[in-house]
Design a protein around this nucleic acid. Structure first.
Length: 299
DNA sequence: GCATGTCAAGTTGTG
DNA sequence: CACAACTTGACATGC
């Protein structure tokens, strides 16, 4: 069993910078690229630091924040690494990150945000989503990340139709991206049961989020969902990925969807114990929550 | 220094 | 019908 940290740290001095398109657009092209170069260099340096830090804690996986290179795919202020004054240094650091992760068996993943929707009926939404995903695939290749995990997106009144659009778009993606793309059950629309046929058809692994499953149940037990999701990883010969979180306000009062600071060990499925799998811990207390969960479970 | 408002993007459900 | 919630700050601005 391997535990994963998502994107950020609570106490450790590892930070990531960003900027906005609006702010960039006020600068001359030269200054824009200078500013972006500084941010990107800072971010890859800190990504290396992040991997050293998780390694020190015995954490075996790390989710990389999507805007590692902020606004790279933006229609107005987008850029490539070759455009940046520190481009060569940035490339070198990406290389070092890949080697460090490989040597220490740290599993890396990406989780594009809610604007990436492959099932949308709107052409431009799908185009923008593909552009963002291909950017993350390029990045994933550079650092040796193995998973780019998305949600199935909107329903638009017909789940089957939406999923068939997802499937059609998937076929047209680059091999770099297709070999990394995974799909996750969400907490309002698509359940494990909804996604399994798509995953089997496309040979896309299913990331099982047990918290979402509890918020948005589908008749499968946790053990059944775990096993059926595991099968989608087994067929492609890869280690299963799952997500865990606890409800901030408990299960009985109010909305269970918001994430708590820590994981209540009671929420950790018994059937996961001892399995060969990666569990990403989605908790506000970040590295503190991962460490505490590992201790609570006696890892 | 510190408080505040803003930031590319989609979709859904709530008030 | 407008707006917050998802992931969640970080940063620019203004006092």
């Amino acid at each position: 069993m391997r535990f994963g940290l998502c994107c950020l740290f609570k106490e450790e001095k590892v930070t990531f910078r960003t900027t906005t398109a609006k702010n960039l657009s006020l600068l001359s092209l030269d200054l824009q690229l200078q500013k972006l170069s500084g941010i990107c260099l800072h971010n890859v340096s800190n990504l290396f630091l992040a991997l050293e830090t998780v390694q020190r804690f015995g954490i075996g996986a790390f989710r990389i924040m999507s805007p590692l290179f902020p606004r790279m795919t933006h229609p107005e202020v987008g850029y490539t690494l070759a455009d940046l004054p520190d481009g060569a240094d940035i490339q070198q650091l990406l290389d070092n990150i890949r080697k460090f992760a490989q040597q220490n068996s740290i599993r890396l993943s990406f989780h594009p945000d809610q604007f990436v929707v492959l099932s949308s009926p709107h052409v431009t939404v799908v185009e923008n989503s593909i552009r963002e995903l291909e950017y993350q695939a390029m990045l994933a290749e550079a650092v040796g990340a193995e998973v780019i995990n998305v949600h199935a997106g909107g329903v638009y009144g017909d789940k089957h139709l939406a999923l068939s659009r997802f499937g059609a778009v998937f076929q047209g993606l680059s091999e770099t991206l297709r070999s990394r793309l995974t799909v996750e059950n969400d907490d309002i629309s698509y359940t494990v049961r909804d996604l399994l046929p798509l995953c089997r058809e496309l040979a896309v692994p299913l990331v099982y989020d047990v918290h979402h499953h509890r918020c948005n149940p589908d008749g499968l037990t946790v053990a059944e969902a775990t096993e059926q999701a595991a099968e989608t990883w087994r067929t492609v010969g890869r280690e299963q990925y799952c997500h865990i979180s606890s409800p901030r306000n408990g299960w009985s009062s109010g909305d269970p969807k918001p994430h708590a600071d820590y994981i209540d060990p009671v929420d950790f499925p018994d059937c996961w114990l001892g399995r060969e799998m990666t569990v990403d811990v989605e908790a506000k207390a970040k590295e503190l929550a991962v460490v505490r969960l590992m201790q609570d479970l006696g890892q």
